[in-house]
């Protein structure tokens, strides 16, 4: 068991682009659940919508090749297409459910997430979506690779060493995270944020004060959804588009990270995402190491690997019992039953 390698791999997660993508999705969910009280159990679907819209637009339309657009324009337009798709998805989910009680949104999002995943998996659409195989990374990474200003071979130090492409994606993804954090911070200190938080506490009270609750809930759903869509793009840029990456499990990782960091705090989602992935990598490394030295008897490597999700479940339970407000949450808020 190489303890140093395990530590190294865990530390690498702190700055990995996947963690950034995940943090972005968690920031989106925080806007939904933490600030607006919207129960969105389909954040993975927003990621899928963003990722597929971006990749499919780049592959099918391919403005760089067909229209002779500069690469940056093609990339920006592809991102805009992904944003529009995420907005449309949010509207489709929100229009029928946001006038109803909160639970309805939860049911609809969890179902819609599976509908999206099964739709893109269908072999009938495999010409466009790649079916259950997904889409190959090289088919949609042309523009972003061409835009890479880094020319060297490796960048960074220690666990955070990467190729030029990795580093480029890393910079993009983390920049986006910083922008999203600033956006959320600006919004939540404003009167807009006050209305949103009021809606979380009691819709009818806010309605009686002359605010259009439905419109505000829709704005929040769209904002969080767009952040989810961008997260989807950032998630697939270092790898390929795999439909099963956007399964329900992803949604619940995002929820775990949000609750771990602290809902309704600006930095909670960021801290939660980093901790979640570091812990997942660390426990994964430890368990496989222990399995190799025979600590689990006859258990196979795959079985030992699954154990970490048991640990995640236990950790989530302990968290909710002993620190329900998360790491950065305000204990005072929980001192009364709301």
């Amino acid at each position: 068991m190489d303890f140093l390698t395990i530590l190294n791999n865990s530390a690498a997660e702190i700055l990995s682009p996947s963690t950034a993508a995940f943090a972005l999705a968690t920031i989106g969910l925080n806007v939904h659940f933490g600030y607006s009280g919207l129960l969105n159990f389909g954040q993975a679907a927003f990621m899928a919508v963003g990722a597929y819209a971006f990749a499919i637009f780049t592959m099918q339309v391919d403005p760089t090749a067909t229209l002779g657009w500069p690469m940056w324009l093609s990339f920006v337009v592809a991102v805009l297409v992904a944003i529009v798709a995420a907005v449309a998805f949010a509207l489709v989910l929100g229009i029928p459910t946001l006038r109803l009680r909160g639970d309805y949104l939860a049911i609809v999002t969890i179902a819609a997430a599976e509908i999206i995943r099964f739709t893109v998996r269908t072999s009938d659409y495999s010409a466009v979506t790649g079916g259950s195989q997904g889409l190959r990374g090289q088919d949609y990474k042309g523009d972003i690779t061409g835009l890479n200003p880094l020319t060297g071979t490796t960048y960074g130090f220690g666990p955070w060493t990467g190729t030029a492409y990795d580093t480029w994606i890393r910079i993009l993804a983390w920049t986006l995270v910083v922008v999203a954090l600033i956006l959320v911070w600006l919004l939540m200190r404003s009167p807009w944020g006050r209305v949103i938080k009021g809606i979380r506490e009691d819709e009818d009270a806010v309605r009686s004060l002359g605010k259009n609750v439905y419109s505000y809930k829709m704005q929040a759903l769209v904002l969080g959804g767009v952040l989810g869509g961008l997260a989807g793009i950032m998630y697939v840029l270092p790898r390929a588009v795999q439909p099963d990456n956007f399964a329900t499990a992803m949604t619940f990782y995002i929820w775990t990270a949000l609750l771990l960091g602290g809902a309704a705090t600006v930095f909670g989602p960021l801290l939660g995402s980093i901790l979640f992935w570091v812990l997942l990598a660390f426990t994964g490394g430890m368990l496989s190491g222990l399995q190799q030295i025979g600590a689990f008897g006859d258990m196979s490597g795959t079985q030992a690997g699954q154990l970490r999700f048991v640990l995640v479940g236990v950790a989530l339970m302990l968290l909710v019992i002993f620190r329900p407000q998360g790491i950065l949450g305000n204990k005072k808020e929980l001192s009364f039953h709301v």
Partner: peptide, 14 residues
Amino acid sequence: KSLGRLTVLQNMLL
């Protein structure tokens, strides 16, 4: 219907 996890002042400003 007071908005519990907002401060009294925030309730008013709303």
